[in-house]
């Protein structure tokens, strides 16, 4: 059964959605069955494409919407949303540890 879930999240990291968190987001998005899109109010982009995610230029405080369509949409939005809302320190810990 396909459902669509959409929610808004705020970028918390002072460096914004830069290359590393965008890469982690795209890889994680690829682990879900659902189709994932990310929108900034002006455009929707493919959540599995780092180039697309980076092109949003999402700095700190920017609100992004995640839209997932598929059997695991609920979980996908929750997990991916948590990635967007990590602080800079949390992003550092995710790969440096």
């Amino acid at each position: 059964m396909n459902e669509t879930v959409e929610r808004e999240f705020t970028i918390r990291s002072e460096l914004g959605l830069h290359a590393r968190p965008a890469g982690e987001f795209a890889v994680m998005a690829g682990r879900f069955e659902s189709e994932i899109s990310v929108g900034n109010g002006r455009e929707w982009v493919d959540g599995r494409s780092v180039l697309s995610l980076l092109s949003l230029a999402a700095g700190r405080g920017v609100e992004l919407r995640i839209r997932a369509t598929g059997a695991d949409a609920d979980e996908a939005v929750a997990v991916l949303g948590a990635l967007l809302e990590r602080s800079h320190a949390e992003i550092e810990r995710s790969t440096a540890g």
Binding site: L15, G16, L17, H18, A19, V50, L51, S52, L54, S55, L56, A57, A58, G59
Partner: peptide, 11 residues
Amino acid sequence: GQYLKALARIS
């Protein structure tokens, strides 16, 4: 913010 802007533009 320059770094993020440059990344976004080249992307």
